[in-house]
């Protein structure tokens, strides 16, 4: 495993923490990040921070917010115009 370790592991790990949490890394890349994070407090707390960010964003979803009643106003107006046009065409 030591062969996987590189000098640029820290910068690389910091950029791939989200990929790691998401499960988007290959086995080899995942091990590279895990080995680095075992020795790096910044990267191990970075993993926790990404997970916390995802929880935070999920918790902000505005599930109860209702759309305003007016959202179909333009559709209704457009439909009414269409009907008027049809009526006028029939009359002429």
């Amino acid at each position: 495993m030591r062969a996987l370790r590189r000098r640029d592991d820290h910068a690389w790990s910091q950029e791939h923490l989200s990929h790691y949490v998401e499960g988007d890394l290959s086995w080899r890349a995942r091990r590279r990040l895990e080995l680095h994070a075992e020795e790096c407090p910044d990267c191990s707390s970075g993993i926790r921070a990404v997970r916390a960010l995802l929880r935070l964003m999920h918790a902000t979803a505005d599930r109860s917010g209702a759309a305003p009643a007016s959202i179909f106003d333009r559709v209704r107006a457009d439909a009414a115009r269409g009907e008027t046009d049809v009526d006028q065409a029939r009359e002429t």
């Binding site: 707390s45 970075g46 926790r48 921070a49 997970r51 960010l53 995802l54």
Partner: peptide, 17 residues
């Protein structure tokens, strides 16, 4: 995610969770 995490800071995110 990288940009938002950088803007908020790891310490604040972990503390809030």
């Amino acid at each position: 995610r990288l940009k938002v995490r950088a803007a908020l800071g790891d310490a604040a995110l972990i503390a809030a969770s």
